[in-house]
């Protein structure tokens, strides 16, 4: 039985030489919901871009047992559903339907299957009525849910979310938390919103300066004030 994600000693430098990741290692089991917390600049976003092969560093990243290589990219990207921080970047098609259908379409699925998955994904995020809408008129909360739908339609093994609750008002945030709790997928959630992590994730990774500095049950990590303070975080 494969780990969903297996990262071994991953390192990465930016073109100008700064080290973004320094020997990161962890595994994520199927069904786990894991929070990834840390100060700005810790390398959370950079790490996420390695999980579906957009960035390639030194060390190894395996997704469902597949090492990330040129020939596996298609399958890797279907398996790892990356939801970016700015929903506007992720909704790049003229209509909501086009956006949600994009993933399955590029997986090479037949039109009927594409339509079916699109409908399912929108239903999963409770946005079925939005299928003919135009992305730029939606609110931030609506856009975030549609963005999640755009990767759900690919039926990924794992959802990787970057700051999902950023910019949401309390009501939208509450709706998002409920959604993340309900969705059955394995998840890795990078966020500053420690309360969200407490409600959704059973396990938490703390990252700082390109390294994983703590890895354990959420209850322990989030209530370890000293640990949090050391890495620029505050208890929720």
């Amino acid at each position: 039985m494969h780990h969903t994600i297996e990262v071994q000693n991953l390192s990465f430098q930016y073109p100008d030489g700064t080290a973004a990741l320094r020997g990161v290692s962890f595994v994520i089991q199927p069904g786990e919901k894991v929070g990834l917390v840390g100060p700005n600049g810790a390398g959370k976003s950079t790490l996420m871009l390695h999980l579906n092969g957009i960035l390639r560093g030194q060390g190894q990243v395996k997704v469902c047992g597949l090492p990330i290589e040129e020939q596996n990219l298609g399958r890797v990207r279907a398996a790892v559903g990356l939801v970016f921080q700015d929903a506007d970047d992720q909704l790049f098609c003229p209509t909501v339907f086009d956006d949600v259908a994009f993933g399955p379409l590029y997986m090479g699925l037949p039109p009927d299957e594409v339509r079916r998955r699109t409908a399912e994904a929108l239903a999963a995020v409770a946005m079925s009525g939005y299928v003919k809408r135009v992305s730029h008129h939606l609110s931030v909360g609506e856009k975030k849910r549609i963005a999640i739908a755009t990767v759900l339609s690919m039926q990924p093994e794992i959802l990787v979310l970057d700051e999902p609750s950023a910019g949401l008002d309390p009501r939208a945030r509450r709706g998002l938390i409920r959604l993340l709790q309900e969705l059955p997928q394995t998840m890795l959630i990078a966020t500053h919103d420690l309360r969200l992590v407490a409600e959704v994730a059973s396990r938490t990774l703390v990252m700082d300066a390109g390294q994983i500095v703590a890895d354990g049950p959420t209850a322990e990590i989030l209530y370890n004030a000293a640990l949090l303070a050391r890495h620029g975080l505050e208890m929720p």
Partner: peptide
């Protein structure tokens, strides 16, 4: 990057 992430 978002397009590539969805298989573009």
């Amino acid at each position: 990057a978002a397009m590539a992430a969805r298989g573009y």
